[in-house]
Nucleic acid binder design. Structure first.
Length: 758
RNA sequence: GAGUCUAUAGCUCAGUUGGUUAGAGCGCUUCGUUGACAUCGAAGAGGUCAGAGGUCCGAGUCCUCUUAGACUCACCA
């Protein structure tokens, strides 16, 4: 054996495990019956972005590997299923930046071409993450590897979509959505970041029609939207406005009469108690407009600029430009009463950081209440356990009043929504395409078809917007019954609509009930482990989808791990320059050292502060194991016994022997208990102390002065320690174990497949 | 606006259901080690467990409040 442990050999060990078949569980003949007798242990890996290399957070999948290796050694049929995610918006934006460097943009390509370009781009990078996971020692079953862009996954997602449409759980509607005009797509509430913005409250006057020099003063944070006002709302109990019933106001600058409505949700104490109502650009106003049947006037378009619904001089400007113009014009008209400082929360795009424009747009929605109710029950009654416990509470409060989920995104990278429109049936569909002269053309189908062929439009298609109420079909052939002129919806599903179906889809759930043996055997899965930041995005959606589609929970335990921070407890980010790359670290110190550093002494649910110092310390520990083993072998060589035995003769034991065996027994019990309770930090810390202090510093030291009666104890403690440590630091333990086996003619087996010492 | 979490040695953090002199790693001081490991060993310095009050025979641990920080959710003009 070399003087020091060399992590370069780790790759060979991984290959040995891989070819041994240890990662691939066998599915018995009768999966359902077998499952009743002995339940498998299953984890579906949260699929990393197929396009990106791993970061320190991914290295934390170590906790899954620990669980999987532990249960495999306990003798449970164990499956850890790998996969990668196409990560819709994330990846498309990365690709757009790449295009930008080449002086191009997404608008230069038709939809099909752009999709293919991104697909190729992702395929080039897909193996990177996969190889990195192998490098970290993750005992994933690669024979079952999946990708969210696999045709069979898409088929299943489409089937579930069909079912939801037919049951009225998916609908189209034009309501207020969070729209980022820069990114060009709608977002769900979860994708909006609220930031406090120091702004103003503008007070200005709306003249009352037919009453000279009488006004109502409104207070607003968004003066620019007044161009789209269609009412002013006041509280019916507000004495100031009581006598105004039936009166109209003259909307300044636009010179249009708008009604006064009486809505009791208006707080008389805020501002002037009178609120301007802009149904197309404010969620609250939208609700009021629906209630009072008000007119909708959308003044900002998808490109972020003001449109033809405003007086000519204000057209074609961004909101902040319109704001200044409106303020100036109201002031010079003598209608501006006052401006006061005011700070409030404004939604910003989580991708590009720009302000979100609430805008009415036709989108696809999931009716969430029926799904959420069941998903609440299974967590409330602990059918699904959420660890650490505090996340149960945040899950339940979020679920309680979750709103309908907009699932359509105006991007091409993802699963194109499987809905087709017959254009002759719905001629008012708005289409954007690139024609044969490479010009981008936008217009209604009924107009475009006069000068362009269907084929040209179809092949150059970029996007379409079908008005709410447009008839759609769930297959292309159905749509073609009336005529051949059909187009598929150009929106794609929110990534989470796809990944929310990951657990049952990867295992081979079948929409027609012909499920695969894998599904019958491994579903519901046992543990889902992920970082808490996607509890709502992903975990909640998986629970809803799982219950809806399979009628069963997707997993029994949702284990939330924490963020990896730097040595000062700060979030890692490229701009701060404090990023620790897991692959650089494992090349330098070994994957074992990195893995140990990520779990040792970490309390469940608390942030994990990682530093090179910490990894180095664990490298020393790994080397300690190596050298202790080497020294045990040297001791045995020196004693040169006739026969190597692991049999312990209790009558010959001294106090030191009894002491170490007693402690070994205790550490075995406590490690098992801690792993059962997901206390990885405590388990690894205790093992560290036991091995280094109790075994090396005390027992091995004492063995230096003794005879061959120590051999069975030395080997027993060493081998048992290797087993207990194996889930945490698989490479060095397996390497040493194989060395002991060949040296002392022990029964051949791999540590990964050996039995847990209980 | 609602909620969650954190505060323990110079630094980063453990401390399971409250139970004797509060622990680890790194750092620091002194010493040792020519035949496992300088990626080592031994010894040591260093903490009124954020503050105040309370429950208890007993509180780092449970309760209340205060202070300071982090985070999550949220359609209020």
């Amino acid at each position: 054996m070399d003087k020091a442990y060399n992590p370069a050999s780790e790759a060979q060990i991984y290959d040995i495990w891989l070819t041994s078949g240890a990662f691939t569980p066998k599915v018995p003949e009768n999966p359902q019956e077998s499952r009743l007798k002995k339940e498998p242990f299953t984890i579906i890996l949260p699929p990393p972005n197929a396009n990106n290399p791993l970061h320190a957070g991914h290295a934390l999948f170590t906790v899954e590997d620990i669980l999987v290796r532990f249960h495999r050694m306990l003798g449970d049929p164990t499956l850890w299923l790998p996969g990668t995610d196409h990560a819709g918006i994330e990846t498309q934006f990365v690709f757009e930046k790449y295009l930008q460097k080449q002086g191009k943009s997404r608008f230069d390509y038709d939809r099909q071409t752009l999709f293919k370009m991104i697909f190729d781009y992702v395929n080039e990078n897909r193996d990177v993450a996969k190889n990195q996971m192998k490098r970290l020692g993750f005992s994933l079953d690669w024979t079952r590897e999946k990708f969210t862009m696999d045709p069979d996954h898409i088929t299943r997602v489409y089937a579930v979509f069909h079912r939801m449409v037919s049951q009225g759980l998916v609908y189209r509607d034009e309501k207020i959505v969070n729209y980022c005009t820069f990114c060009g797509t709608a977002f769900s509430n979860l994708e909006v970041e609220h930031k406090s913005v120091a702004s103003h409250l503008w007070y200005f006057k709306y003249p009352i029609v037919g009453e000279k020099d009488k006004y109502i003063t409104v207070a607003t944070t968004r003066p620019e939207t007044m161009l789209g006002d269609t009412a002013v709302a006041v509280n019916s109990k507000d004495p100031r406005y009581k006598n105004l019933s039936g009166k109209k106001l003259l909307l300044p600058l636009v010179n249009k009469e708008i009604p006064i409505i009486f809505e009791d949700s208006i707080d008389p104490k805020f501002g002037t108690g009178a609120v301007k109502v802009t149904p197309s650009h404010s969620p609250e106003d939208y609700d009021m407009a629906k209630k009072f049947n008000l007119e909708f006037v959308r003044i900002f378009d998808y490109d972020g600029k003001s449109n033809k619904n405003v007086p000519e001089k204000y057209r074609g400007f961004y909101p902040n430009q319109v704001r200044q113009m409106v303020i100036d014009d109201l002031t010079s008209a003598g209608l501006m009463e006052k401006i006061v400082d005011y700070s409030h929360e404004v939604g910003h795009c989580y991708k590009c950081g720009r302000p979100i424009e609430p805008i009415t747009a036709p989108q696809w929605f999931v009716k969430i209440k029926p799904l959420a109710d069941k998903a609440v029950d299974v967590v409330k009654n602990d059918e699904i356990l959420i660890f650490p416990k505090r996340f149960k509470k945040s899950y339940l409060t979020w679920m309680k009043d979750v709103r309908d989920w907009p699932i359509s995104r105006q991007i091409v990278w993802g699963h194109q929504i499987p809905a087709w429109y017959n254009l002759d049936e719905t001629p008012n569909i708005n289409i954007t395409f690139i024609n044969s002269q490479n010009e981008t053309i936008t217009g209604l189908w009924s107009d475009l078809i006069k000068n362009n062929s269907y084929q040209e439009i179809k092949s150059g298609l970029q996007s379409l917007i079908a008005p709410v109420g447009s008839k759609f079909y769930l297959s292309e052939t159905d749509a073609q019954k009336k005529s051949q002129n059909v187009l598929q919806e150009t929106d794609t599903f929110d990534t989470w609509f796809s990944s929310g179906q990951w657990p049952y889809s990867t295992l081979g759930w079948d929409p027609n009930g012909h499920h695969s043996p894998d599904f019958e055997y491994f579903y519901p899965t046992t543990v889902l482990d992920t970082m808490w930041d996607i509890l709502f995005f992903w975990v909640a959606r998986m629970i809803m989808f799982g219950l809806y589609t399979t009628g069963q929970i997707p997993f029994k335990v949702a284990h939330m791990h924490s963020r990896v921070t730097d040595s000062k407890g700060q979030k890692m980010s490229k701009s701060k320059g404090n990023v620790i790359d897991p692959l650089t670290m494992s090349d330098q110190y070994g994957a074992d050292a990195l893995r140990m550093a990520l779990v040792i002494g970490v309390a469940p649910g608390s942030d994990i502060s990682l530093s090179e110092d910490k990894i180095r310390a664990q490298r020393n520990f790994v080397n300690k194991i190596w050298n202790a083993s080497r020294f045990v072998e040297m001791l045995i060589d020196r004693l040169n016994p006739q026969k190597i035995s692991l049999e312990i003769d209790k009558s010959k034991l001294s106090d030191v022997d009894n002491d170490i065996l007693d402690k070994l027994n205790k550490i075995t019990i406590s490690t098992t208990k801690h792993l059962d309770h997901y206390h990885f930090g405590q388990a690894s810390e205790d093992l560290y102390q036991f091995f280094w202090k109790e075994f090396c510093d005390i027992y091995i030291e004492s063995a230096k002065d003794r005879g061959e009666e120590t051999i069975p104890v030395l080997l027993t403690v060493l081998i048992t320690s290797l087993k207990l440590l194996h889930p945490f630091i698989p490479f060095v333990t397996e390497t040493v174990y194989q060395d002991l086996i060949s040296k002392y003619n022990l029964p051949k087996e791999l540590l990964i497949s050996s039995s847990w010492p209980l």
